[in-house]
């Protein structure tokens, strides 16, 4: 019961932030030089259509009214038509959002696959050769541009070995998955290194705490101590970091999708900026920040379930 209260409370806390996000996006669209109605319809639109939209957007009315009209459109998902693709923005985005989230999912898979074991090994072997090696590798991974790593992977697995596609998305689920492997690994590296460091440091800290010694002093098996006492506590801070980085992965999709020519919303955003397709730009930016807020909410709730110390 208290968990439900907590979720409701967090939901209510998000609303003002969401409101400010919409104000910012509204302001952003008004800050672009030129007539907002013409920006929405493109340079080549007919004057009559522009006039009609001007009335609809309330450009003759005060800014506050214009904002409310904007909000109404946002809530009713009346986001206009893409200038570039000539289809409704909602439809365009819904076609592409699956790819971006799948990509983030694949990256998450690799992040966990790489960082958990390595972070654990480094933490349990503090200052030994394994720890030092892992430290150097993670340092290099953090300092490398992921899109460069992506191109190198492409060069090796795609051009040289011809094992995986150089880019593109294919048409069957298997092709989809193959297409996501390399970009998934490329965008996973930085986060994997960060999570690995975080885990390593948590484990080193926890290892010096009394409750681990106390568990051992009761004669618990080594396996039990490591699982229930060390890892369970070390994973707590890793979960928060992982979710923060999920938001980062969504942002990073902008570059990585362009590198691998993947038609997700990241590439859509870049293409729309170049094409001055502003209805799409504003919708994608809103969607991404909305996703971040939802992810943060889920993390907080998840964390409250994992850590009994959080007051609900």
């Amino acid at each position: 019961m208290s968990h439900i209260n907590y979720i409701v409370k967090r939901l209510l806390q998000i609303l003002p932030v969401l409101l400010c996000v919409t104000i910012l996006i509204f302001a952003m669209m008004r800050l672009i030089p030129g007539d907002p109605a013409r920006i929405q319809l493109g340079e080549n639109a007919r004057e009559a259509a522009v006039q009609a939209l001007r009335l609809k957007m309330g450009l003759d009315k005060p800014l506050v009214t214009q904002y409310f009209i904007f909000m109404k459109q946002l809530i009713t998902l009346d986001l206009g038509t893409s200038l570039l693709y000539k289809i409704p923005v909602v439809k365009l985005i819904s076609q592409r959002i699956g790819l971006t989230f799948s990509l983030a999912g694949v990256s998450m898979f690799f992040i966990i696959l790489i960082s958990f074991p390595l972070g654990y090994i480094a933490g349990m072997n503090k200052d030994k050769a394994a720890d030092q090696t892992i430290r150097v590798i993670s340092l290099a991974a953090i300092s490398m541009p992921s899109f460069w790593l992506g191109i190198l992977l492409m060069l090796f697995f795609g051009v040289h070995l011809r094992l995986l596609p150089v880019g593109g998305w294919g048409s069957t689920p298997l092709e989809h998955l193959k297409g996501l492997l390399l970009p998934g690994i490329a965008s996973a590296m930085v986060t994997a290194a960060l999570v690995m460091r975080n885990l390593r440091n948590s484990i080193v800290d926890i290892n010096s705490l009394d409750y681990v010694d106390f568990a051992r002093s009761k004669g618990l098996m080594d396996k039990t101590v490591k699982k229930n006492y060390i890892m369970r506590n070390a994973l707590l801070s890793a979960v928060t970091l992982l979710s923060m980085r999920f938001a980062w992965l969504l942002g990073g999709s902008v570059v990585i999708e362009t590198v691998f020519a993947l038609p997700g919303i990241g590439k859509l955003l870049v293409d729309s900026i170049f094409a001055r397709d502003y209805p799409v730009v504003q919708s994608v930016v809103f969607l991404l920040s909305f996703s971040v807020l939802v992810i943060n909410l889920i993390t907080d709730v998840l964390y409250a379930f994992l850590d009994p110390r959080i007051r609900l």
């Binding site: 996000v21 938001a247 980062w248 942002g251 570059v255 920040s289 971040v292």
Partner: peptide, 11 residues
């Protein structure tokens, strides 16, 4: 903080 860093820069 609600915007991913890259997206904010791009915007």
């Amino acid at each position: 903080m609600a915007f991913p860093f890259t997206v904010l820069v791009i915007s």
